[in-house]
């Protein structure tokens, strides 16, 4: 009888779960395989990478592939550009979106609904429809080949403002009234009272922006052509030779380009997944 009653309280292992584990483990390994293979190949020689049949385990660990990355690429430059664009864009968005989101959630002013509607309309338009004029602007301002060209358009986010508005709408009004009675001006109320309470929203906007800035390809590819002005997401492509490719070095560079994001997300695992889930479900 216990086999047929679908009671869920028991801690016993049931045969049904064995099948589930088999499926999930297979699927999970398919998901993880590219990372594992890239790591292994980053420690192999080119001959081992191209061997038939495949040779998964390198004869010895060719750590020198990682050192070679610094000779083939201005890796530190590109790493610096990636860090700069990620930090500036994320910080800029957090400040601008939380301020605007707060005003849209809590202040009354003429045209509030119209302006918010116009802002949301941006979300329905694909970014390609902005790119040519945006290129014209950063070119006219003399910013091509600088990290500012990569950062500027992305600092103003309709999506981030929308998320922050939702966040502020969910907070109690009474706190603001108390702050106002205590003599805070609107900025002090926002900065000292409301913003600290909005940290889940800030976190959701922050991680989405970090991930997007670090990995973004099309826009940085367009506004940078010199190897020293590129972020890593563009720079790695310059290692793909047209006729011969040093696969081992390419794999090592790829591992190094992805490592910072993986370490960051490993450090904040739980909150990241919650944050992404909120940003997704509210969007």
């Amino acid at each position: 009888m216990p086999e047929t009653t679908p009671k869920r309280s028991g801690r016993r292992r049931r045969p049904r779960h064995l099948l589930v584990h088999a499926v999930l483990l297979t699927g999970g390994l398919v998901m993880a395989f590219p990372f594992a293979w890239q790591l292994l190949m980053s420690l192999a020689t080119n001959a081992e990478i191209q061997s038939v049949p495949p040779q998964p385990i390198p004869s010895r660990l060719h750590v020198e592939n990682y050192a070679a990355v610094f000779d083939r690429l201005p890796f530190l430059h590109q790493f610096g550009v990636s860090v700069f664009i990620t930090v500036v864009r994320t910080a800029g968005q957090l400040v601008l979106c939380s301020m605007a989101g707060y005003a849209f959630a809590r202040m009354r002013f003429p045209l509030r609904g119209v302006l918010f509607g116009l802002l949301l309309a941006i979300l329905m338009i694909p970014s390609q429809a902005y790119i040519i004029p945006q290129y014209g602007i950063v070119q006219a301002w003399g910013l091509l080949e600088t990290p500012w060209a990569i950062v500027l358009p992305g600092m103003f986010s309709a999506f981030g403002t929308f998320l922050m508005r939702q966040q502020f709408l969910s907070l109690p009004v009474e706190l603001e009234e108390a702050a106002r009675l205590d003599g805070c001006n609107p900025f002090q109320t926002f900065w000292r009272v409301m913003l600290p309470l909005a940290s889940p929203g800030l976190f959701a906007v922050g991680i989405t922006t970090v991930l997007y800035s670090w990995n973004d390809l099309l826009w940085p590819l367009i506004v940078t052509t010199r190897e020293t002005s590129m972020p890593l997401s563009v720079g790695i492509a310059t290692l793909q030779g047209q006729h011969t490719t040093d696969y081992a070095v390419l794999m090592a560079a790829s591992v190094m380009a992805m490592a910072p994001i993986f370490l960051l997300f490993l450090a904040m695992q739980r909150r990241v997944i919650e944050g992404l889930a909120t940003s997704g479900l509210k969007g």
């Binding site: 005003a103 302006l115 945006q134 600092m155 103003f156 609107p186």
Partner: peptide, 28 residues
Amino acid sequence: GPHRAGAWPWVFIGPLLAGVAVFYYYPI
């Protein structure tokens, strides 16, 4: 809305709207 209208809302949304106008509305 606990804060009376006035200049404050524009201080809060001004920077974002300016950027959006330059980098999104004009471009489209």
